[in-house]
Each structure stands twice: as C-alpha cells, then as structure tokens.
Simulated assay, not measured.
Amino acid sequence: MARKGFQQQLTELRENVLYMSEIVLERMRKGLRALDEKNEALAREVIEGDHEINEIYLELEQDCIDLFALQQPVAGDLRFIAASFKIITDLERVADLATNLGDYTLQASRDMYPDVDIQGIGVDVIEMVEDAMDAYAEEDTDACFEINDRDDEVDARCERASSIVVRDLIETEIDSDSSDAEIEALMAEVSRLLLTIRDLERVGDHAVNIAARTLYMVENSDELIY
C-alpha cells in the first residue's frame, strides 16, 4: 500500500510540473503580446502575476524535497524526482524572463528596428519550451535531441538580430543639435532591445535544459547536460 501511495505521489508531481509549465507559457505569451502591442495593462498583469509562479515553484520544490527525504527513491524514481526538481527551476526562470518582457513594455516608447523579428523569435522559443515539456510528459528522448538542435538556429537568429541593432547604432548620425535627453533615449531603446533578444535566447536555453533533464530521467544519459 505504501508503494502505491509513493507512485501516486510521483504521478501527481509530474502533473503539477506540467501545470506549472502551462501557467509559465501563458505568461510568456502575454509578455510577448504586451511587448508587440505596447499594452501596459497586460504588461502589468504579467509582472504582478509572477508571485503566483514563485508560490507554485516553492510548493513543488518542497514536494521534491519530501520525496527525497521520506521515500528515499532509487534508480528511475530518483532520476525522475531529480529531473523534475531541475525542470521547475528552469520554468521559474522562464517566468522571470516573461516578467522582464513586461518591464521592457513599460519602458518602450517606440519600435526602432522593424527588421528585428522579436515576435518570431519569441514564438519559436515558446514552442521549444512547449515541446520540451511534451517530451517530459511522454518521455520522448528523440524530441530532446531535436530541441537541442533547434536551439542552434535560435542562437543564430538572436546573433543576427543583435548585429542589426549594433550596426544601426554605429551608423546612426548624432549631430550637434541632438540633446542629451535624445541621446539617452536612443541608448535606452537600444539597450532594451538587446536585453529583449538576450532574454528570448535564454528561454531557448531553458528549453534545452528541460530536454537535457528529461533525457537524463529516461535514459540515465547526461549527453545534453552541459
């Protein structure tokens, strides 16, 4: 009977981790939309909702600690709990990056670089996290390697986007009539956009982390952990 209870706890842990991922991904979608629409109300909703993610994270963290301490799992069960513990950490950090998108929305005054496809990159990294969580749910190791491969393209897109911004800044002519306030506003916009690109790239990195932990969970392989 005790063993049946333990297996039920493992099932509930998996379900709760997946539930957390759904909320985090919804925060990311809202943050991306807020940035695209310059929607301050939606941005504040994302920012103010971060405490909910933190509370879920702390509850699941405690669940994992209790399972380690009280059940003393071994082999596959041990790897599953350890992987889940790491995955919720990645999800919490993705939620923090969604909050950053909300902050950037409140700071943004205009779109300076229409050639930089922030939305396209954002959609891609959100899909990577979705697919990584599906791999975790279904124990799909092939998907883990596919997600890792997709991250290379995301990294390349982010590098190209950053290069566009930096090149344009270098080529921008600032004449003697430009006020200090105008120059500061320009630099603030450039900084915000570069940070946005960096944060989206990090979301992709967290998707790879989730895939790596899933591969470890299923096959006891650390091939993607680095």
Rank of each mutant, 00 (worst) to 15 (best):
A98L: 00
R27I: 02
V123I: 11
R44L: 09
E159L: 09
N100V: 02
A98R: 11
M133Y: 02
K86V: 04
D63P: 08
S84D: 09
I88H: 10
D96Q: 09
G122W: 07
D117Q: 10
A132T: 01
R29N: 06
V190D: 01
D111I: 05
V94C: 05
L169H: 10
L186E: 10
D222R: 04
L195M: 05
S109T: 15
P114M: 04
I81G: 00
D175F: 00
A161Q: 14
I88Y: 03
L169E: 11
T214E: 05
N148Q: 13
I88W: 04
V116H: 03
E173Y: 11
A82R: 15
D96E: 09
L169V: 14
K4G: 05
I81W: 03
E48N: 12
D77W: 07
A185Y: 06
Y136D: 03
L70F: 14
D115R: 12
V46C: 06
V154H: 12
I210D: 07
D180M: 10
Q8W: 01
D152T: 10
I56P: 05
L97M: 08
V125L: 02
S109D: 14
I183Q: 05
E52N: 03
A135C: 12
M128L: 13
N54C: 07
L193Y: 05
I65N: 03
A34D: 00
L13M: 08
T172F: 10
I197Y: 15
A137K: 04
Q71L: 01
K30G: 13
D103N: 08
M20V: 05
E173V: 08
E153F: 13
